[in-house]
Design a protein around this nucleic acid. Structure first.
Lengths: 236, 236
DNA sequence: ACCTGAACACCGTTCAAGT
DNA sequence: ACCTGAACACCGTTCAAGT
């Protein structure tokens, strides 16, 4: 026994084309759409491609490199608005359309916010966004405002993604809150519970409510930026 | 050979007190302070306590349960301001002091934002925060404003934590930007590069710059909330 | 009730050997 | 250059058996 099993036919001798880095990222991108950026392993990518795990290291590098490849691809799918619109519209559009793309690839928003500008695909967005802010009169604050606005929107998408890993969290929270619905000693919680109940009656769909809160966040952030314009320059 | 090794003396027979859930969370909390919430394994916690891995499951549950225990402990360390201060001060203080605590335990901010109100320690903060907003006149918007403000601050802390895992990211970005410092075809990037260079000359310390941007974000978010107060009620 | 000790089904990464 | 195949040092979780 333990007679050595026959070596499997190599891809080359079977007439198969060589694996490329692009094909590896393709597979990882598909798995990310299905299960999120933290929902697949290098071994699963290699199985999907029909090769041994070491092949991924050979063509792309370690897991981190594959993740960066996926992140770059997703970012490049986010449409960049034309720069001839008012700054609020430019950012509002980028944020809404960015969310639509990012939510298809759970976990990528977080990477984008963390390593953001290091990814090649992000550069032209940064260029145009800061130009729009300069034209709007933000002057020396343009860079910080840009970071602030993109953070606000895409950090929230990252949290929306993460909440997908805790499917019971919403219901648990609802119950925790409801317990205070008529508790005079906790007026804040009582008010929050009442609002939560009213909202859940008016709006059954969770995705709809999530989008509403995203829009709310976008508008508040734009208001927060706009307040810098209506302020004497010397008060920072 | 293969003679069965002698069974190790049990904790009980060695006169040692039984492990408790609290002691397990204590150990995990220490490891979190040292290496972050994703920087330790259940096996490392068990080694630190001198017991077998299965013991953690017996007393606390799976890894997720241990992480929740750590999160609850950290949140309970965040001081909640008195409710007799103006709403901007109340939130500004909570955010700054919350950041100081959370940054000592990398990775906890993310959990807090994602599962937030499910953690017992968060309830009194929610109660007081919403009360402060109601008193300030936010009315039916109080709950959403509360979520918006806490998200803004603590999502940013989560990103600050995450960036710790990419120590070279800042330098890489600096180089990528600097390449555009005098590129007329990319006015936005050129401006960003110039501002980045000016800043790095004025402010060598990265932690200081991070705190500055955190404060900037807090002020912008408070401005964004305040804009809701100076608005006719019927325009939402 | 509490803990030991082992087993199970996974990971990511590395690397000699084959083609 | 590309890939096979195995090895290495880890994971989290489960569970029978001991005390």
């Amino acid at each position: 026994m333990s007679q050595t099993a026959p070596r499997r036919k190599s891809r080359a001798s079977a007439g198969l084309p060589p694996i490329t880095a692009d094909k590896i990222i393709d597979s990882a991108l598909e798995l990310t759409a299905e299960r999120g950026l933290d929902g697949w392993s290098i071994r699963q990518v290699s199985t999907k491609l029909g090769v041994w795990p070491g092949v991924i290291a050979h063509h792309v590098g370690d897991r981190e490199a594959v993740v960066m490849g996926v992140t770059d691809r997703v970012i490049s799918r986010i449409p960049v608005p034309d720069t001839d619109v008012p700054w609020r519209d430019w950012f509002g559009t980028l944020m809404l359309e960015g969310r639509a793309v990012l939510r298809q690839y759970p976990g990528v928003a977080r990477r984008m916010v963390v390593v953001g500008p290091n990814v090649p695909a992000a550069l032209s967005t940064i260029d145009k966004g800061i130009k729009v802010l300069l034209d709007a009169g933000f002057g020396g604050q343009a860079t910080q405002i840009y970071r602030y606005l993109l953070n606000s929107a895409f950090m929230l998408v990252a949290v929306e993604d993460d909440r997908g890993d805790f499917p019971t969290a919403r219901a648990d929270m609802g119950r925790a809150m409801a317990a205070f619905a008529d508790d005079d000693s906790h007026p804040g919680l009582a008010a929050a519970a009442a609002q939560a109940i009213a909202r859940s009656e008016a709006q059954a769909d969770h995705a709809e409510h999530e989008l509403d809160f995203f829009r709310f966040t976008v508008e508040r952030s734009l208001d927060g930026a706009e307040a810098m314009l209506n302020r004497p320059a010397d008060s920072r």
